[in-house]
Amino acid sequence: MLTLTSPVRIWAHSLSAWVKLGAICVFTLALMQLEGGWLAGAVALVLALAASGGRVFFAQWLKMLRPLWPFVALVALWQVWLGAPWATFPIIARLGAAVGLANAVTMTTELAEILALLTRLARPLARLGLKPQVLALCVALVIRFVPVMLLRYAQIALAFRARSPRRPGWRILMPVLLATLDDADRVAEALRARGGAG
């Protein structure tokens, strides 16, 4: 499946995931306090970090910031309406810097590495009955079944269209959901056939 990791390898890939996650926490908390020149400095720092990955990296990094635009527009309109348009800048600077750094970490950390970290974090839960293997199995099942279910959805939509002039719309929900429930039962059986969930 598609992941959000960077198409090119940069220096930040070799940093430990713990360090990078720690950096996000500290940086995000600090951003809340920063004003004026310091805030501008923080934004410049994030931009510099992203740019250090080269053209391809930077382009994808910018692309990942796109979902923020509606919020930028909204905040700007709001501030104009309040008669304080300049207040838009610090708000957007904080948001952009925090999201930008976190996205850069996502882009430079392999999925396996993050999952290993999560398994580590979940270890105390073993005493409550959540074994790390079970978590890993769940993750694998989700990654396996997202494409399978997308395909199933497309097939059901086609089957619907083959027999109805209307667009499937919400009517398709029911068969998709029933298919999910049935799949869950059968996959449970397949798991049982190979020794169960431990």
Binding site: M1, L137, A140, L141, I143, R144, V148, D183, R186, V187, E189, A190, L191, A193, R194, G195
Partner: peptide
């Protein structure tokens, strides 16, 4: 049973668990 019976399901999509 792991060493006694191995099962090939009718539909492979119900058997494959991993990506």
């Amino acid at each position: 049973m792991l060493t006694e019976v191995g099962i090939l399901f009718q539909n492979p999509d119900h058997q494959i668990l991993f990506p």
